[in-house]
């Protein structure tokens, strides 16, 4: 891990209909960490990611990616939305969905060609989904759909990956496959930020963690701050998990 800051969030406040869902968030994410964002339902975890990516407009504050605004650094960032956010009955194939990851570098109007197809096939291979490339996406299991989404992010060949609950509704094999890919990304000095629900696996999967509940509770290395004190502050109840350190 280097000392460079990959993502910096300053005084970010986001509101839906004037009700703040994120309040005055300051956050520095160092380059090369594998970070979990944890917090209860409605804590604003997805909102935080969406605001960083410019999908939602904050009412105050700013975000920078390697020191510049997101608009200028788009090509450095890949995004895996929640699996449930799209219609899996959409008439398209696994390969085609992965190809969508290349659209960003193509820009408006230009069509994907052989080069993009090759990159998409490689990404499918990486997540073990190559045999399913021509399958209609509704014919895939939940775990396979999540792998397709991951492949779509990998094809962007970004420096920073944002993932919204990539482990939701996937089988154990897929979970292991995904975490191995995320760890490989970290090894390649990529920064990976994951909205995560399963507190038990945080120490095993991640090296960095952010506790969020409308406000930021704490952020830092898992080994220093993943403790009952922060969990209780975040979840509001006397929260104890058995953590093997």
């Amino acid at each position: 891990m280097s000392s460079k800051i990959a993502v910096q969030v300053d005084d970010l406040t986001v509101a839906y209909n004037y009700k703040p869902v994120l309040w005055d968030i300051d956050l520095e994410i160092p380059e090369g960490v594998l970070m979990a964002i944890v917090g209860p339902n409605g804590a604003g975890k997805s909102t935080l990611i969406k605001s960083i990516l410019g999908i939602l407009k904050p009412i105050a504050g700013s975000v920078s990616i390697y020191g510049k605004s997101y608009d200028k650094q788009r090509s450095l960032v890949a995004y895996v939305p929640q699996k449930g956010s799209v219609d899996w009955d959409f008439p398209t194939t696994a390969l085609d969905v992965v190809m969508m990851g290349t659209y960003g570098s193509l820009g408006w109007i230009k069509r994907p060609g052989q080069k993009e197809k090759k990159a998409a096939l490689e990404a499918l291979e990486q997540v073990g989904m190559l045999p399913f490339k021509n399958r209609q996406i509704s014919q895939l299991s939940g775990g396979q759909q999540q792998r397709i989404f991951l492949a779509r992010a990998l094809v962007q060949d970004a420096s920073i990956y944002f993932m919204d609950e990539p482990f939701q509704g996937v089988d154990a094999t897929t979970e292991i496959a995904i975490i191995n890919i995320l760890k490989a990304l970290r090894k390649a000095n990529k920064t990976v930020i994951v909205v995560h629900h399963d507190l038990q696996t945080v120490p095993e999967y991640f090296d960095w963690v952010t506790f969020l509940n409308v406000k930021k509770i704490a952020t830092g290395p898992v080994k220093d701050i993943f403790n009952d004190d922060n969990l209780t502050k975040t979840y509001g109840i006397n929260y104890k998990v058995s953590i093997q350190k």
Binding site: R74, S85, V86, R152
Partner: peptide, 14 residues
């Protein structure tokens, strides 16, 4: 196609 299938990704890609 992209914005119909996944508006979130479309927005994040610009």
């Amino acid at each position: 196609k992209l914005s119909t299938f996944d508006a979130g990704l479309a927005a994040s890609l610009g």
